[in-house]
Design a protein around this nucleic acid. Structure first.
Lengths: 164, 164
DNA sequence: TATTGTTATACTCTATAACTATA
DNA sequence: TATAGTTATAGAGTATAACAATA
C-alpha cells in the first residue's frame, strides 16, 4: 500500500489492519486536515500575530459589509455567544472591528470591519490563500475538482445527520 | 452551484465568489472534518466521559502492546512532552494505563494499557467506528475508495512540504 | 553535554450559567 | 416571557521554559 512507504508516525498510524474502510478513510482525512490546519495556525501566529478564530471572524465580516450581529456571528462561527464577545473585544481593541448600535433594537449591535480592519484582512487573506495553494499542491486541478464535488455529497449528508 | 442550496451558514460560508479553487476546496474540506470531529468529541464525552486526545493515546497503546515511551507518545500524538505527562496521569488515575520502568534506561518509562484499559478501549473503539461509519455514509463504497486514494497524494505532499 | 520526563506557568478556545437590558 | 449580549467561571488543550535524574 502506498501509505506504508511513509515513515512518519502520526494520527493515522492509529489505524489497524482489521479496521474498516470508513475508519481508515476518516483517519487519513483527519491527518491531512489537521496537518494543514496546524500549519495555518502556526503561520497566522508567526506572520500576523493572530489566531484562526479571529481570522474567521474577520472573514465573516468581510463577506458582509453591512455587518453582522453578535448572534449571527455566533451562529456562523459555530461557537457560543460569550466567545464571540471575547473575540470581538480583542479585535475591537486592535482597531480592526467596531460595534455599532443597531438602528431599531437597542439590545443589539452591528459589528463591522473598520477601514484598518479591511486593509489588514485583505493582506492576511492574500497571504493565507497562498499558503492554501501551496499546501494543496499535492493535487492537480482535476483532482481538486473531484474532491470538491465529492465533498459536496458528504457535506449534505452531515447537514442532514448531525443536528446538535 | 450545489452548495448554494444549503441554507446553513458555517465556516465554508467564509468563501467568496472571487476566491480560487484551492481555497474553496480547503474551506469545504475543513467544514466537513470539523463537523465530524465535533460530533466525535461530543459523543466521546457524552457516552464515555472522555476526550479525543485521551482516546488517541489509548489507541496508540492498543497498536503497540509492548508499550511506548513518553517521548514516542509525544511524537505520535504530535504534542509536546508536558501534555503527554498530563494525559497519561489522567489515564493512569483511571486505571487504564500504567507506567513501567524501562529495563535499561532509568530515565524512561514504558507506558502500557492495563487489562481494564484494553477492555475499555475495545468497547469505545467499536462504538467509535460505528459513529464514523454513520458520519461517512454520505459516500458510497466506491466514493470512499476514491477519496482514500486521492488523500494519499495529498498526504505525501504534506509530509514533504510541512517540516515544522 | 544531551536526553527523558516532570513541573510550573500562561494563553487560547470553548461551554455553561447567571445576569442586564430591552423587546 | 423571550431575546441580545455580557460577565464569570471552569475546563481542555496547547506551548514554553526551567528543572532533576540519568545517559
Amino acid at each position: 500500500m502506498l501509505d506504508d512507504a511513509l515513515p512518519e508516525p502520526d494520527l493515522e498510524s492509529r489505524v489497524n489492519d482489521r479496521d474498516h474502510q470508513a475508519l481508515k478513510l476518516w483517519l487519513r482525512l483527519l491527518a491531512c486536515t489537521t496537518r494543514i490546519e496546524d500549519q495555518i495556525r502556526q503561520r497566522l501566529r508567526a506572520d500576523f500575530g493572530t489566531t484562526l478564530p479571529r481570522f474567521d471572524l474577520l472573514a465573516q465580516l468581510e463577506r458582509h459589509p453591512d455587518g453582522l450581529s453578535m448572534r449571527e456571528l455566533s451562529q456562523r462561527l459555530m461557537v457560543t455567544g460569550g466567545n464571540v464577545t471575547g473575540i470581538t473585544d480583542q479585535l475591537e481593541a486592535e482597531g480592526l472591528v467596531q460595534r455599532e448600535p443597531h438602528p431599531s433594537d437597542r439590545r443589539s449591535f452591528t459589528v463591522k470591519l473598520t477601514a484598518a480592519g479591511r486593509r489588514q484582512f485583505k493582506r492576511m487573506a492574500a497571504t493565507h490563500e497562498g499558503w492554501i495553494v501551496e499546501l494543496m499542491a499535492g493535487w492537480d486541478k482535476e483532482q481538486k475538482s473531484q474532491v470538491y464535488e465529492l465533498l459536496a455529497g458528504l457535506k449534505t449528508h452531515l447537514a442532514e445527520t448531525t443536528r446538535k
